[in-house]
């Protein structure tokens, strides 16, 4: 959230509600709609860290609104963020932990855990497929995000298969 707000402010100064609208316009249905409260909290933190500043703009009949703009330090942070590689996704370590520990507890065996997890992944995949069907073919951002989720899920399933082969 910090970086996306900084990126939007690097384009032009804006107030909180405009930032929310911009995020919705760019990502469409592909991303959870940002909470306005969360946006203000994040802006407050960015201001405290010196990455943005705000000016009050008088409005008739309403309380002043704050317009935020990015500072030189904010731009530098944004530049560094844009240039560095992004961390890869993490392995599902909670499931792996269950898988390794389960037989020791005597509560569940690995075969049952893997089978249940596979069915769960496949039902998620089914939902993603239905979602892709319902999504406007012109909404490339949303469709790419769905495809990304599907590819991750496929990798999770392949890994599950490897676990089933390797763990007794």
């Amino acid at each position: 959230m910090r970086q996306s707000l900084l990126a939007l402010l690097a384009k032009e100064p804006a107030h909180g509600y405009e930032l929310k609208q911009a995020l919705e316009a760019i990502f469409g249905s592909a991303y959870p709609s940002p909470n306005i409260g969360q946006i203000y909290v994040t802006l407050g933190r960015l201001e405290k860290d010196g990455h943005v500043r705000s000016v009050g703009v008088e409005q008739s009949n309403r309380p002043n609104k704050k317009v935020y703009y990015i500072t030189a330090a904010g731009l530098e942070t944004l530049q560094a963020w844009a240039e560095e590689p992004t961390e890869g996704p993490r392995v599902r370590d909670e499931f792996f932990m269950k898988l390794v520990l389960a037989p020791m507890t005597g509560l569940s065996d690995r075969m049952a855990l893997i089978n249940r997890q596979r069915r769960h992944y496949l039902s998620l995949m089914r939902e993603l497929g239905e979602l892709a069907e319902r999504t406007d073919p012109g909404d490339r951002v949303a469709l790419l995000l769905i495809e990304g989720a599907m590819l991750h899920l496929q990798a999770d399933l392949d890994w599950l298969e490897r676990c089933q082969e390797e763990l007794p």
């Binding site: 249905s29 592909a30 959870p32 039902s123 089914r126 939902e127 979602l131 999504t135 769905i146 989720a149």
Partner: peptide
């Protein structure tokens, strides 16, 4: 089995 009924957007899945 489908866990939820149809509906929702990509954002929910993400």
């Amino acid at each position: 089995v489908r866990r939820r009924g149809p509906g929702g957007t990509a954002g929910d899945v993400v």
